[in-house]
Design a protein around this nucleic acid. Structure first.
Lengths: 145, 145
DNA sequence: ATAATTCCGACTTGTTTTATTGGAATTTAA
DNA sequence: TTAAATTCCAATAAAACAAGTCGGAATTAT
């Protein structure tokens, strides 16, 4: 039950965009270098983020990506759902009656609790929170923001 | 970020054992038939459950598996951790300084929140809860327990 | 024009999950 | 005491998925 690199890289990238929110559009190249993400792969990950309306792009030279909303209005949940395709830990919640048992399955109730709980957690953390939590926790280093 | 069949089957199997807690040892064959799990695969999944001290086995004819503790004292978390190997969604929490950044990583704080939140959720659901939640939710069917 | 960039889709590679198979050891019951 | 039922163990196979690469077309600032 690990997060894939999609989710991990995605959070890193969005955090990066949040940090540079006032610096104009950030290119894939710049983000990938700063965050240590393979360039061609990041390109692939940012597409769903755009589709989900979390970032906007400007094409051409000097182009790049910008957060579509303020860092305090984008949650970790928004990002993870866009990249991991929903946070239900089990398919039977998304599909219609995937296992043919519908209600007749005690586990289903568990999966629902997990899904709802997880969503509540990730929706309670914004990109802005990430920045501030980090500053609070690691105040000694990296004072150059 | 899906649960693997290990976790899913595991929960089904343990729920099954909880239902038959008073019926003597349950064989792999019986469990797998009732729960629709490939027999040989279930055998493989129950080994870690035994290692984790969640079930006990009796060998030989008429043998099988029994819950090691009462259903109200085994949580979904116990089962999932045994089968999925810890519920941190990211390796950098388990290993020592896996990415070389240690504290210097805002995402790490997020992963910790997720891990702790998830653990709190799954540890809040016992096998007994599963049985009772199910009875409450689907009282109309399956009154034969 | 040219260089920098996003955008798009196909492809490759490696890892992990999901099993299957065969057999040895143990125990109950006829 | 033998046969049947079962756990236990280890190796292998097949399928699915994740992670990453590649080549090129379209767009835009300088």
């Amino acid at each position: 039950m690990k997060l894939s690199t999609r989710g991990r890289y995605g959070i890193h990238a969005m955090y990066d965009l949040a940090k540079y929110a006032d610096g104009g559009p950030q290119s894939i190249k710049a983000i990938s270098e700063r965050e240590g993400i393979p360039e061609a792969y990041l390109e692939q990950l940012i597409a769903p983020l755009k589709r989900a309306g979390l970032v906007t792009s400007t094409r051409g030279a000097q182009g790049g990506y910008t957060l579509a909303r303020a860092p305090e209005e984008i949650t970790v949940g928004d990002v993870l759902r866009a990249l991991e395709g929903g946070l239900s830990l089990v398919d039977c919640l998304d599909e219609e009656d995937a296992c043919g048992k519908s209600c007749a399955c005690a586990s289903r109730i568990v999966w629902m609790k997990l899904r709802d709980g997880l969503n509540a957690i990730v929706d309670g953390i914004t990109l802005k929170d990430m920045i501030m939590d980090y500053e609070r926790a690691c105040a000694q280093e990296d004072r150059t923001t």
